[in-house]
């Protein structure tokens, strides 16, 4: 009959009205500044620089100023200046470090390519999104002090990814130690051989296999080969 559809519709909205007061499943509104919904783990906004120690962020930056990210960045918003001296990095190996590392987040498009290409797991994507500023040159042009975030923060925003990175770095560190040990042993053997007898030439070739085995212990050899290589070499 004419009008029955209207009555049905009125019943639906009446149910909505009553239900909105006692049924939380109906009210999906999140009142933003006070309440926040949890961001998905894969959400990304702008890059950050991972450092190992929150107390000394500049001393423990993973970045070695290789400038791959600077070259890959599509809108070219990264600017890096290399240091003249070398500092020991996470694995204890002397490396260059960035004296200037600046990202213009007003230019950055959040593509995440810098984080993908970084061989040192240094540059990662942050999850901050409340970046409103009144001046883009002081507040949106971030320097390395502003970009540096401790590894614990990285774990808090991307736990799965950070765990993978940590496992990989630990393996690489282990490999480097083994290699150093092997090299030390080889050197000791060499020194001992040199001390005992002059003809020590056959001792040289056996020192090469330890190097090869060390690089193959790194996980996921196919994709990670360049990383472990660069770290080991």
């Amino acid at each position: 009959m004419l009008g029955s559809g209207i009555l049905k519709g009125l019943a639906v909205t009446a149910k909505n009205f009553v239900g909105s007061y006692h049924d939380p499943a109906r009210m999906v509104t999140v009142q933003y500044p006070e309440e926040r919904s949890k961001l998905p783990e894969n959400y990304r906004s702008f890059p950050l620089l991972v450092c190992e120690d929150a107390a000394d962020p500049m001393g423990t930056l993973r970045c070695v100023a290789c400038q791959i990210c600077e070259k890959e960045c599509p809108p070219q918003c990264i600017y890096i200046e290399k240091s003249k001296d070398k500092k020991p990095d996470a694995t204890g190996k002397p490396q260059l470090y960035p004296t200037v590392f600046a990202i213009d987040t007003s230019v950055c498009m959040g593509c995440g390519i810098c984080a993908e290409v970084c061989p040192f797991d240094s540059i990662k994507m942050d999850q901050v999104f409340e970046v409103a500023a009144t001046d883009r040159f002081t507040e949106l042009l971030l320097n390395r002090e502003q970009l540096a975030k401790p590894n614990s923060y990285y774990h808090s925003i991307h736990p799965t990814e950070a765990a993978e990175v940590d496992a990989r770095l630990a393996a690489a560190r282990l490999a480097a130690e083994e290699k150093a040990k092997a090299a030390a042993a080889a050197a000791a053997a060499k020194a001992a051989a040199a001390a005992t007898a002059k003809p020590a030439a056959p001792a040289q070739p056996p020192s090469a296999p330890p190097t090869a085995s060390a690089s193959s212990t790194a996980p996921a050899p196919g994709a990670e080969a360049p990383k472990s290589y660069s770290r080991v070499s």
Partner: peptide
């Protein structure tokens, strides 16, 4: 407010 409640909004 009423329209909001009728549509499950605040």
């Amino acid at each position: 407010k009423l329209l909001g409640r009728l549509q499950n909004r605040l």
